[in-house]
Every structure is written in C-alpha cells, then in structure tokens.
Design a protein around this nucleic acid. Structure first.
Lengths: 343, 343
DNA sequence: CTGAAAGCGCTTACAG
DNA sequence: CTGAAAGCGCTTACAG
C-alpha cells in the first residue's frame, strides 16, 4: 500500500541498510548513491514510519507537556502563549508535542509513564504549583526534563524562571519613589511560587522604603478580571484607600481599572497602577488607556527557551548548565505618577 | 532493563501470545490464567511499549491537533479552553493529544503527514479559517477527522459548529424589540466563517425589524480588549452614536465597556451591551458589572464533543451521522434594557 | 562503500 | 484454552 523502506530499496536495487543510511545522512555512503536514494524517496513520496523508527531507536522525536486538567492556572490564557513558544522550537527541530491530559492525583504517574514509555524524549513541567516531590522524582530518574518555574536549588534539573521577586521589588520601589505609601498588591494565588516570590519582592521594597505593610492591602487569588475588580473595590472601600496598585497580570489590572473608574478616581492623577505583563497579544499593555506601566517578560519567549533546553537535554547536555533566571524589565508608561499629597 | 512482554511471559511460564491476550482482555483466555497474568503485570510494573504496539497494530492511540503558529485566532485564549475539553475526553479513553506545530504554508502537508504516518488515529481541524481545500483534501483521504467549524455541506466530514447565525440573529432581534435602532456590531475578523455567520444573522435581524443597517456601525477585527475599545469609541464619536452594542466576545465587550464609561454613558441606562460568551473561566459574564447579557455556548463542551466524534470515527462510525450544529442560548442579564427615546 | 541479519516489543492469524 | 512463528518497518553492529 504505502511506500516503505523495503519496497524503496527493491526499486533501487540497494539494501535497506544503505538506503536507510543515505536517508539519515550517514557519512559512509557514496555521494552518488545518496543522491539517487534521495531522489527516489522524493519521487515515491517515501516517509519513514515514526513508530518503527521509535521502536528501533528508542527515541520518539517528541516533547511531552502534562496538562493537569483541574489546575486552573494552566487553563489560564497564558498557557497558550507558552505553548506557542514551545511549538515554535519543536517545529524547527522536527519534534512533535504531546499534550498529555491528567488529573491532579495522577500527575506524577503520567510523568513517569511518559518517561518510561518512550512516548516522549523529554518532559516539560509547566506549572507553577511546584510541589517538590514531583520534580524530585522526575529529576531522580535522570530523564530529560525542564521546569518552567523555580525548583529547589538542591534538585538537579534544568529550569527557567523569571525573576519574580526582583520584578515586584523593582515595581514597589518605583512606586515608593513616586511618593506612594499605601500600595495595594493584587496578587495571584500565593500558594503558587511565582506569586509568593512576587509578594516577597514587594514586601522587601516596602521595608526598604520604610513602609510598614498593612495587611488590608494584600489580596491574592486567581488572576482574573473579576478578582481585579473585587480586590480593588475592597481596597478602595477600606479604611486606608491605596494610592497605587500593583497587579499580577493585565487581566487583574483591567478589573482594577474599572473599580478605580467607578470610584470616580482617575489614572494616574489619583491612583497609579502597575501590572505584570506576560505579553499576551490579546491584551496589550501599551494599548490600554492610559498605556500601562508594567513589569514585562514574554511568556512565549520562555516557552521557546524551555523547548530549546529540553532539546539540549535530549542531546545529552547535563542539567547543571541549564538553569536560567531571567531578569524582568520595568516599562514605565502612563499609568503611574507621583502620589498626591493625601497621606 | 525494563520489564517487557518476553520477560513477563518467562516469569509466568506462559507464551507471549497468552499473556498479550490476557492483558488485552481477549475472551478466549482462562479466567484463572488472566488473573495470574494481571497480578504479575501489576507486581512487576509492566507497561506495554506504545511504539511496539503502534507498529504491530497500526493504531496510535492519539489524536492530532495541528497548531498553526501564525494564525493568531488560535493563539487566542479560547483555544486553551477548547483544548481542555479535548483533553478531558482523550484522557478518559486513554488517548494522547499530539499538538503539531506548523506554519500556514505547511499546514496541509502537516495534516497529510499525520494521516499517513500513523502518528495519530484522527485529526481535529480546529480553526475557523476554513479554507475548503484543506478540509476537502483531508476528507478525501477518508482519514478520521473532525472539523470544529462549518465545512461546505458537500464535503463528507464529521463536524461540530455552533449556530453563529442564529445566535446573533437572536441577539439582534432582542435588541430591536427593546427599541434599539442604532446597534453597533463589534465583530471578529469577518474573513473567518464564524464571524461572517454572525454578521449575517445580525443583518437578518435588522432587516426583519425594518432597520436599514448603516455601514458606519459595523466593525470587524481580532477579538481583543483594545479593538473593543477602539471600535466602541469610534462608534460613539460617529454621526449616529449607537444605543446598543453587540460584541463578538467578552474581551471585546470589556473594551467597549471602558469606552462607554469614558463617554459618560452608563450600562444599561444609556447603552445596552450583549456579548458572545464562550465561557472562559477567567472572564465570566455574570461577574461583570453589570452582569452581561450574552449569547452563550461553551467552547470547552465543544472540545469534549469534537474529541468524542474523533474517537467515534476511529471506531469506524461514518462521518454522515456526525454533523452537529449546536443552538446558542440568549442569556438575559443586566447589561441590556429598553432604548432611551433619543432616536 | 555496501549488505545480510538480528533486534526493537508488541499483535495475530494459524494450528493444535 | 494455549503456543510457535511471522510480521509490523525501521536501525545498527558486524562482516566484507
């Protein structure tokens, strides 16, 4: 039916061995022979069977991403941008992406299945809920894996994270320098490490500026428009209404903007706003009104780099050299300004 | 190294044939034998090699989704919800999901590769940019495939779409019944069929209500917050400011809300707003202020059903019976009200 | 530079 | 109810 190695070799009057070698770019093949083989393969539309190759070589030419179905952090729109980045690199290298659905209680089992099965050559641990056990077990197997996030420093595993602590430290310091003393933090879910890190950076900035953080200005939860709205509304209605907001995402900021407008306040005259910006094409910080000051880091670029690291690991590169923490840039736009002397 | 069929059979003192049959639930195996085999497999942590099984059977136990990297419709946050639905079903049936990245010019080639390779057992054509050639070629191969969207009626292929025409007809009629005569359509990119269908439904509603659609109230483009803002602003600044907006998504409506507020108008007293709601957990229509009237259809449920259809196709069910168009519900909430007599 | 042959780990007629 | 053997379509020592 469909052209396979055997038939192709027969047509060429060569052995399967030689044809296989010619096709796979082995050096010991006569150049004229190789050309003949390549031409014939092209002409007959020969495509090697991935299943057979996989069985013979033990390599899958695929990257695995486990998709935990209930963990709504990953159902987050951000995930698609990250995936786009991973796909970009994978496509360039001829790798497929296996998105393996799983429930939370089976997550570890799914990783181990992928690792043992040979269904994929490497696994991307893409989730901010970094329970150490999961990472530790994957790392222990020595199976190529890359964490998007921050593993404990004693675990031998490739990883990429952004400097969440530094980002919100920078943002907090900037607001303090503008004279803000009451700054609300509209954070992501602080059970997740990225959000905890951001809080730590923000608190450090406050301390350095001599501001004692008041608990009523801390909010944490899923990064959604409605939480942004709810949190900002609560903050503004409280006993010490903030003059500035630091938001975990553009979506959160969108909700906050609305609450601020409803309170009759304007940005940046009455209230300053900074948001973390993962560079989602559908909600661009520079298209908001006013354009928003952000801590910026492309989550798509992170996907690109994580995939590159995964492929490097497959190629035999050890995890030690593959640990990166990206600095985050503060991009000052129109949503921030000096605090009004209402303190 | 790792436990395989051969070793397991040796330990049991049985042939590979019998062990394989016991494991795969074939009826002709003695029940006692089966129990013994199952127990041993469990005890030794035996997992059959997917590559070997695939080579032997020709089935991959995987569903393919081609991910066109530039087509930003798919980079859309909606895609992740759709994918979540697909994953849910795939997981239940023991299928993996292969997300195959591709560039627009190689899209067809990627489908055909997946179809021929046996890398996947079925393909999900998940994109609103339904060029007929692509679908027609996939359909012609007879390879199991399901379209998320509306193929031409003469193409023999399984498909699921929502009734976009009916949805916006319903929404348009509802607004007209409330007395609105100047209604702005903030549509998605009308080169894509879902958006073209929505426009058609809306125009039909206008005609039926005796309203001649004024061109300056039609807007079309990527469904983003900023487009919602830009379009609504332009509409409100025009010579015939609308008293109602029909928006292609919650994101678009979010932008429109903001433009409306900036114009000093309030919802629903001055202006009514309806949006199409794909039920993204991060932007819930009922959590907006005021809660938004929507045409509602769960894109995640669509993912679920599309995956089920794909698996049915793999099971041999012919495409003829697998064509569904889901009705869309109009959910009336607080963002719509009677038109003020300003006309 | 080329080839014959074994092997990757399963499934499945076919025979008993 | 069970087994010996061929086959799925590749790759890769090993020999020449």
């Amino acid at each position: 039916m469909t052209m396979n190695l055997k038939e192709l070799s027969a047509k060429l009057g060569l052995s399967q061995t030689t044809v296989s070698r010619a096709l796979n770019g082995y050096p010991e093949v006569n150049e004229a022979t190789r050309q003949r083989v390549l031409a014939a393969a092209e002409r007959h539309g020969y495509r090697p069977s991935p299943a057979a190759r996989r069985l013979a070589t033990g390599r899958a030419q695929a990257l695995g991403i486990v998709f935990p179905m209930e963990r709504n952090v990953l159902l987050d729109p951000l995930f698609i941008e990250f995936l786009a980045g991973v796909c970009e690199v994978a496509g360039r290298h001829g790798f497929d992406i296996l998105v393996s659905p799983t429930t939370a209680d089976q997550e570890l089992a799914t990783y181990e299945r992928l690792a043992r099965d040979g269904t994929v050559d490497a696994v991307i641990l893409s989730s901010p809920g970094l329970e150490d056990e999961r990472i530790r077990r994957v790392a222990k197997r020595g199976f190529p894996a890359v964490v998007h996030g921050r593993p404990n420093s004693d675990v031998q595993i490739a990883s990429l994270d952004i400097d969440n602590e530094g980002a919100f430290h920078q943002a907090g310091r900037f607001l303090a320098q503008l004279g803000h003393r009451r700054i609300a933090l509209l954070n992501g879910d602080e059970k997740l490490s990225f959000a905890a890190d951001r809080r730590a950076g923000f608190v450090r900035a406050l301390r350095e500026a001599g501001i004692e953080p008041g608990d009523e200005l801390f909010f944490s939860g899923q990064m959604s428009v409605e939480n942004g709205y709810r949190f900002a509304r609560a903050a503004l209605a409280g006993p010490r209404p903030p003059t500035a907001f630091l938001c975990a995402s553009i979506l959160v900021a969108l909700g906050a903007q609305r609450a601020i407008a409803e309170s009759g306040l304007s940005i940046p005259d009455d209230v300053s706003v900074i948001a973390h910006d993962d560079e989602m094409p559908s909600f661009r910080a520079d298209h908001l009104h006013p354009p928003m000051t952000t801590t910026r880091s492309s989550i798509r670029a992170a996907g690109v780099r994580v995939a590159e690291m995964a492929i490097a690991r497959i190629g035999g590169q050890p995890p030690e050299g593959l640990r990166e923490v990206w600095p985050v840039e503060l991009v000052v736009r129109g949503s921030t300004g000096p605090a009004r002397g209402r303190d």
